[in-house]
Each structure stands twice: as structure tokens, then as C-alpha cells.
Amino acid sequence: MCPAVGISTTVMNGLMLGAAVLLVQVFSSVTIALFKNHIHPRIRIPSYTLTIATWVTVIDLAMAAYLPGAYAKMGIFIKLIVAFAIITMRLEMFACKERVGDSFWDAVGMGLGFMVGMVVIGFVRELLGSGAVLGHDVLGFKPLLFFILPSAGFFVVGLMMAFFNWVEVVYKRKKRTQA
């Protein structure tokens, strides 16, 4: 989570990080699903970490080679994807038990969800922190500089979680009244 809140200061950064995580998640899930019968249960976590680290390195190298602009901005954060618990969690919960195809779609869903989350966080922080959307100045002033600083990332994540909890509560209440 730390690199995520560190980098998600603009919509574009959020999108790029989301895309990188999506790719790592898909590749790692498919790899683990392919090799699940060969992974000794006692060393599954090191194997997951190794797989993730490999794909992160590959994506890191590819980005440095073909997307130099984006890489200059977020190069150090790409390497930190190795430590994203969300990827390891999906490997442990899903990919090591299910078939390759299912793992692939699970990874795509997870990655897309993460990407949307990052973009929303980036949008809020960019709008409130620098008064812009996708680099275009829309407000003309900077409402709250605080949102650009890393700590604000946690703040926005917290607000998002509160929002989804609230949606859940409302939804459940509605269901109960219908029943």
C-alpha cells in the first residue's frame, strides 16, 4: 500500500501504476497456476515472491526501454510492486488452487479493480492537491496542498473504504426492508 499512496498523486500516475500491477498480477497468477503442482507446499510463499519479483523485473526493464517518460517518474515505485500484499494474496487464495484460465480472469479482475482504485485516488488527490485533472488546470487554484503529500494517500484510501462500507450498509438495509 505504501508505494501506492506514494505515487498516486495524479490520475496518470495512478493509471500507470494500476496497469503495471495488472500486468504483474496476470503474469504471476498464470505462472503460479501453471506450476502449482510443482510447488512444494512448505515453500509456496518464497515461490510466489520469486515469481512476482521476476515479473516485476521484466516489466521494470521493459518500461525503462519502451516508456522512458513514465519510467523516469515512477521507476523506483515499480520495483516496490514486489511487496504488494494484494498480489501475493491472490496467488495464495486463488491461483494455487484453480485452473489457469480461471486464474487469468481472476487476476484481470483484481488488477482492473486495483487500477480503478488507483485512478480514483489519483483523481481526488490531483484535483484537491494541484487543482488539475490529467495535467490540465481546471480549478485555477490549489485547494489543499496536503493531498499531494504521501500521507494524504492513506487519507483518501480511508475515505474510499468508508464510502464502500457505507454503500454496503445501505445496500443491506435495502435488501432487508425488501425482504
Binding site: T54, T57, V58, L61, A62, A64, A65, Y66
Partner: peptide
């Protein structure tokens, strides 16, 4: 895998 990726991307990098 990492070595192969390095060889492929090194020049462009």
C-alpha cells in the same frame, strides 16, 4: 527469464 528480458531491452534502455 530476467536475463532474457535484460538482453532484449538493454539496447533500447
Amino acid at each position: 527469464v530476467m536475463g532474457a528480458a535484460f538482453i532484449v531491452t538493454d539496447k533500447a534502455k
